[in-house]
Computed example of a mutant assay.
Amino acid sequence: MAKLSFIAGFGAGYVLGAKAGRERYEQIRRAYHHAKDDPRLQSAAGMAQARADAAVSSVKTRLGSETGTTR
């Protein structure tokens, strides 16, 4: 998940930076790092990760119980 976010952020920064020039790229990069370190964003990301983990666990449990009943 983090790798995908990094790649998406890098790609967006590269494209926007290439179009707007180095100064704008640096501005975007600073804004990204500022947002990344924001405790509110970290909290939201943690809650989203916990929900995703719970959903994956639930699906795994359902798949396990369904495959067990058909045999």
Rank of each mutant, 00 (worst) to 15 (best):
L4R: 11
A8D: 03
G9E: 05
G9N: 10
G9C: 02
G9L: 05
F10T: 08
G11L: 07
A12E: 10
G13K: 03
G13E: 01
L16D: 04
G17D: 00
A18S: 14
A18W: 02
K19C: 00
A20N: 07
A20H: 02
G21I: 01
E23D: 13
R24A: 13
Q27K: 11
I28T: 04
I28Q: 07
R29F: 02
A31S: 10
A31N: 07
H34E: 15
A35H: 05
A35F: 09
A35S: 08
A35Y: 08
K36P: 00
D37Y: 01
D37L: 03
P39I: 11
P39L: 08
R40E: 11
R40V: 07
L41T: 13
L41F: 11
Q42G: 08
Q42F: 01
S43V: 08
S43K: 13
S43D: 15
A44R: 11
A44C: 07
A45F: 07
A45R: 13
G46T: 10
M47T: 15
A48Y: 06
R51L: 09
R51S: 05
D53Y: 04
A54Y: 08
S57D: 13
S58L: 15
S58N: 14
T61K: 15
T61M: 14
T61R: 15
T61L: 14
R62W: 09
R62C: 04
R62P: 00
L63E: 03
T67N: 13
T67I: 10
G68I: 09
G68K: 15
R71H: 05
R71K: 11
